[in-house]
Design a protein around this nucleic acid. Structure first.
Lengths: 255, 255
DNA sequence: CTAAGGCCTCACGTCGCGTGAGGGTCAACC
DNA sequence: GGTTGACCCTCACGCGACGTGAGGCCTTAG
């Protein structure tokens, strides 16, 4: 059942050279070699390759992919959820570009010229509220939404028990601050936000401030998360996002 | 009104080095220099830069962008329409990836493993050489392109009305079939779908069945199109998509 | 036994910049 | 007038993810 380079290359539609390259980097070393020194890939190697390609598609540097996949704390589910988020971000970027093309076409139709600032709007950073609207629009009541809703219910049944308990405690503490009317910028709230960041780092993956902020955006924009979080206390997801953003800013990450 | 490098860089959110690079390549040479040799960019330069960035965003090699933009046959409208198409192709690619992530999550939930062939399905649809071939088919120096480009560049305002009339007629005919309750798979409807494909090929760009199908998807997923089309008759956009898909299938393109 | 095709390991080339190095320019303030 | 600091210039080397030979061994079909 061992496959040669070219067979794997055909299956996964990557070049043989790329497989060599991944071997050199220690990113994907075939588990075996033939007597003549030919690379021999197993099923497990294929699975790893798939992971590599997922991350590569998302434009992760190979070195980082190696780190992620070799990390013993690597959590496949968390990684996949992350990938979902990254895909969303890319999709909204595409949307922004499409709008830009549309504006250009409109301008063209009306014989107008676009002024300097407007011209490059699409390439800039996106307005999160606009982003939220777009995501909600896309997730409307499509088939994909139902699918995701079905899965959300399944998630709840799963046993993340230890991990979940720790997370729940943080949520509860944050929900109390929300209930007490404390602003998300207050020191105690920021401390909890930071604790949450480290919780993620500890259990899932190294979570930078930037990523944490992105996570907060996902909490409000991905209904699977929003529903889950707001069931603790309505408005909590938005509150979390604000706290994460503030915490990132306090630690020198500009928005 | 002349801008310096750093001003342009801030506006367009590219690095100064990148602007230098584009200058070196002859991709975007500032129209002026100060006495001290400083690069000075005009409004026209900004417009060209925007075009450059559009194509760059779509992962065109810089050298090719230069060819395209320097091409005297370059038609802005055609380019923008094409960019829309490329964007929607990319969007569906993202969608495929998202489905792949979802499948992986599902498999994980059920403790299953994905088999070798299925594992790479999401990556499979997108054969890069095929993609390049398609792009070259549209932008390369092929006879077909030259012809269509010559045609496109010739028409001005009056021609757009002819063009629009022709399109409207197709829409009206298709709307009538929808109103009469004809299935999108019926021969007469398929014939109209095919006519529409050739209409696009004639006026805009060589429109393969795959691209035509993509166009149909865009009609339902892009509200700008959906609204416009459904204003002729509610549900028409979805009807068009179904007809385009069926027409593609009948012509040997698997979905 | 030979030819074709697949495999190996160097090793240099490419593309789109990033990142200094080394040095002139410009506006403002002392 | 001098100094400071932000901005500009031109080399020129570095990097990541491979592409693309070159030169040579392995294996199978005729």
């Amino acid at each position: 059942m061992a496959l040669t380079v070219s067979q794997v290359a055909r299956l996964a539609k990557v070049s043989v050279r790329a497989l060599h390259h991944y071997d050199e980097l220690g990113l994907l070393c075939p588990s075996g070699r033939s007597e003549a020194g030919y690379r021999l890939y197993t099923q497990a190697d294929l699975e790893r390759l798939q992971q590599v390609l997922f991350f590569r598609e998302l434009a992760f540097p190979l070195e980082e992919i190696r780190r992620i996949l070799n990390d013993s704390r690597f959590d496949l589910r968390a990684a996949l959820l992350m990938q979902r988020q990254l895909l969303s971000e890319r999709a909204s970027r595409l949307d922004a570009l499409r709008h830009a093309v549309d504006s250009a076409l409109d301008a063209l139709d009306q014989g107008k010229t676009m002024d300097g600032e407007k011209m490059f709007e699409a390439f800039g950073d996106f307005d999160p509220s606009k982003y939220e609207a777009e995501v909600n629009e896309r997730w409307g009541d499509t088939e994909a939404y139902k699918e995701s809703a079905r899965r959300t219910s399944r998630y709840k049944k799963e046993d993340w028990s230890t991990l979940k308990a720790e997370g729940d405690q943080l949520m509860k503490a944050l929900a109390e601050h929300l209930g007490a009317g404390h602003a998300p910028t207050e020191p105690e709230v920021l401390a909890l936000a930071e604790a949450h960041r480290q919780y993620i780092s500890k259990w899932f993956y190294p979570c930078s401030y930037v990523i944490h902020r992105g996570l907060g955006e996902m909490y409000v924009s991905d209904s699977r998360f929003t529903e889950n979080i707001d069931s603790v206390k309505p408005g909590l997801s938005a509150y979390l996002r604000d706290a994460f953003v503030a915490n990132a800013e306090r630690n020198g990450v500009e928005s």
